Computed example of a mutant assay.
Amino acid sequence: MADTETKIDLIWEVEEIAKLIGRSPRQTFHMLQKGELPAKKVGGRWVAERNTLLAFFLETAA
């Protein structure tokens, strides 16, 4: 049986997202609030998928 399970690497909380994108937590929070980052609010906490977030920045840099 083939392994079709996909591993999703989630980043929880503004501080962790900020570390990944190289911004301050305050800058990141404002970007999240304005919908400028591919992330969602789940149960009052921000969450982003690592690969989606990285791909977003690679696309905007091109």
Rank of each mutant, 00 (worst) to 15 (best):
L53N: 05
T52M: 14
L54H: 02
D9E: 14
K34P: 00
R23Y: 10
A55L: 00
D3T: 09
E15C: 06
I17S: 02
R26S: 09
V14E: 12
E36G: 10
F57Q: 01
K41I: 11
A18E: 01
Q27N: 10
A62T: 01
V47L: 04
F57E: 02
F56R: 04
E15T: 14
N51P: 01
G35M: 11
L20C: 07
E49H: 07
D9R: 10
T52Q: 13
K41T: 14
R45Q: 10
E36N: 12
K7S: 04
W46C: 02
T52G: 01
E13M: 09
F57H: 07
P25E: 12
G22R: 09
A18M: 03
R50S: 01
A62L: 03
A2V: 15
E16D: 15
E59C: 01
S24Q: 07
L37F: 15
A61G: 07
G43I: 12
G44F: 10
A62N: 03
F29D: 07
Q33G: 02
A61S: 12
L10K: 15
R50G: 01
T52Y: 13
R45H: 12
L53T: 12
M31R: 09
Q27W: 11
R23N: 05
V42I: 15
V14T: 15
F29L: 14
R26Q: 09
S24P: 02
P25T: 11
R45L: 00
K41P: 04
M31S: 07
E5M: 13
M1W: 06
K7L: 10
A62G: 06
D3H: 07
G35P: 11
V47N: 02
A2D: 14
T6Y: 05
P38K: 05
I17F: 03
P38F: 06
F29Q: 11
T60V: 12
V14S: 05
E59S: 00
L32F: 09
K40E: 09
K19L: 13
L54Y: 03
T52I: 14
G44E: 08
K41R: 15
T4I: 13
G44A: 03
T60Q: 13
P25F: 06
T60L: 10
F57I: 00
V14M: 01
A62V: 03
W12G: 02
A48H: 14
K41E: 12
I21R: 08
E36Q: 14
R45D: 04
K41L: 12
V47F: 04
R23V: 04
L20M: 13
F29P: 00
K19E: 11
T52H: 10
V42F: 09
E36R: 13
I8D: 04
G22Q: 09
F29Y: 14
K34W: 06
E59T: 00
I21N: 00
W46F: 05
V42M: 08
G35Y: 14
L10N: 14
W12Y: 12
R23C: 01
D9W: 05
G43W: 12
K41F: 06
W46N: 02
Q33I: 14
Q27M: 10
R23E: 08
